[in-house]
Design a protein around this nucleic acid. Structure first.
Lengths: 330, 330
DNA sequence: TTGTATGCGTTATCAC
DNA sequence: GTGATAACGCATACAA
């Protein structure tokens, strides 16, 4: 194991200087001559130095954990997100602890621990929307200087907009869906509303409208209603290529089953494009063309930003673009 | 923060004794009078002691990580498994690092790290089956005394059977499926073969056969063939209640879509029971009755066993029973 | 800009 | 069965 001691000896400087040169804290980094730093860095690289976080954390008096507060809904996007977070946290040498109950108690517990052993951080979905008490707790945490990165914090209007966040560009995702249908020569457009994330529908609609066509927005709650409406439409306009954008994959799957049961040939009679890219989207028949959310990337980014913030580097929010996966349903 | 020092003072004994009394290593535990140990334990409990793993690990000269080697397939079972592992690892104060590429390199990297800083552990799917080189690497790791817990190591015949493992009781799961169909009054039985885990079909078949009925095993690779066979059967025996057991949910979803497209009413004409309990099984129409795998529990168990093994306690393999979730498809 | 000395909480060694 | 003491690798107050 390569320690600061060995590097110091090899480089011919003291441990202190070595420590500073390799410190993740920018302020300390500056307190060593550039030339010395480069030299130390080179030696560290050569010896394959990996900082002993146990020692660092012990000395710093912190028991740093990245607390991740994620939805308990165990879908495959969550798995990807956790993969990204885990791998990056491993790289950074930071332990993580996942929490899947978005209760005030859960947050309070973690934050109390975090206070007594500083330098922890939080990665969380913006559950403040759901429970105002959580907002208060996290708010206080931030005032004490606690680091936090928000995941999927879409709205830019609310008071947390100054928080660092990593989000999916849902608007762009909607546009991708629209463009694909347009490329396919579709001329009639349906979409199901999904109030939680209106950006998806907005992006879709804007792209269609800017092509001088219009979108018929349907009520996502009323699947049967959608099916019968589509059925009537297809009967009335047999020649026209028709497409529907379902901005949420669980809904898309339900709808697909019902359409099939009604004898509608999805992929030919009707183009269906989904949003999410869940694991099972590949296994339906026809398999779903979908706008996939690269949640692994989101997770990795979130960790990187959080760690940087913990060490007082400055960090900016980021918007990650989703990707179109073309399969059989459209 | 409660340290050994505080507990020692409060309990009126030395730090050394306190350390021994609270040690996770059984051998050390025994070197303190039972009476003293109970007292120390009580005080620790009262003060809410949480061991500082950083200090422990630093002293012990280990940089312990639990390396989890899991399938890269990001389905919801995996998410549950990761949840269970994470939460328990958090409780135990052990960092984890997830790996999703089942390559030899991935294992070798981790094991090399693990060697230089002892007391690491591995939780893994038995990928040895897929790549013999992995088997060699892990074998060597075990000879050096490395701790390992296998997940879903079903077969009891192969040479790794002496390894600690946490697995799903697939045979019992198959039986659950059969019993449910029998309870529903089904008298004609189909099942799709799934060679990877024959125990599911075995359990299903045994339960049916012991009720003096028989099962028609169909080729899971040939979904269209299954559909046409079922269709003919339903036409030939319109009165009889018919059921099919699909021992793998991705297949079940594909099959469901095709059945629906053929106008077969799943849940009335045909009872379909699935296996896995993936997230999306709830959203199909009809929603899937399924034998769900409690992977969260599996994850937690695996961690607990691994940590116990790392501290040289003795540990046994465990079989976790799956659970029947009754929905609309059967 | 660099170096010396000290201690974080724990476990291991060795004495009693 | 118990206790004093040293050491793990690192960060930092302070001195140079």
């Amino acid at each position: 194991m390569t320690t600061l001691n060995k590097i110091a000896t090899e480089a011919g400087v003291s441990i202190t200087v070595t420590s500073r040169a390799l410190s993740p804290v920018p302020k300390l980094n500056m307190r060593v001559a550039a030339k010395t730093r480069d030299h130390v860095l080179a030696v560290a690289q050569k010896l394959g130095y990996r900082p002993n976080r146990n020692a660092e954390f012990l000395k710093r008096g912190m028991n740093p954990v990245i607390g991740c507060f994620l939805p308990s809904r165990p879908d495959s996007l969550l798995a990807k997100l956790m993969q990204g977070i885990s791998e990056e946290a491993d790289l950074q040498g930071f332990p993580i602890s996942f929490h899947f109950d978005m209760t005030v108690e859960s947050y309070t517990d973690f934050i109390n621990k975090a206070k007594s052993s500083k330098n922890c951080g939080i990665i969380t979905y913006p559950y403040f929307k759901l429970d105002h008490k959580i907002e208060q707790v996290v708010d206080e945490y931030r005032k004490v200087g606690g680091s936090i990165v928000l995941i999927e914090s879409v709205s830019s209007q609310w008071r947390w907009h100054d928080c660092v966040s990593v989000s999916i560009d849902n608007y762009h995702g909607g546009k991708l869906a629209a463009k694909h249908l347009l490329n396919k020569g579709v001329s009639r457009f349906f979409a199901t509303n999904y109030s939680n994330i209106p950006e998806r529908i907005d992006g879709f609609t804007d792209a269609i409208v800017s092509d001088s066509k219009s979108v018929d927005i349907l009520d996502a709650e009323d699947i049967s209603g959608i099916v019968s409406k589509i059925k009537k439409h297809l009967a009335a306009f047999p020649g026209e290529k028709t497409g529907i954008f379902v901005s949420r994959e669980p809904t898309a799957i339900t709808l697909l089953c019902q359409l099939l049961a009604e004898g509608i040939k999805v992929g030919t009679d009707l183009m269906l494009i989904s949003f999410d890219g869940l694991y099972t989207s590949e296994f339906s028949k026809p398999s779903l063309t979908t706008v996939a959310q690269p949640f692994k990337k989101v997770g990795a980014l979130a960790v990187r930003k959080l760690v940087a913030d913990i060490y007082n580097a400055d960090v900016k929010s980021e918007l990650v673009k989703p990707e179109l996966i073309i399969r059989k349903s459209a």
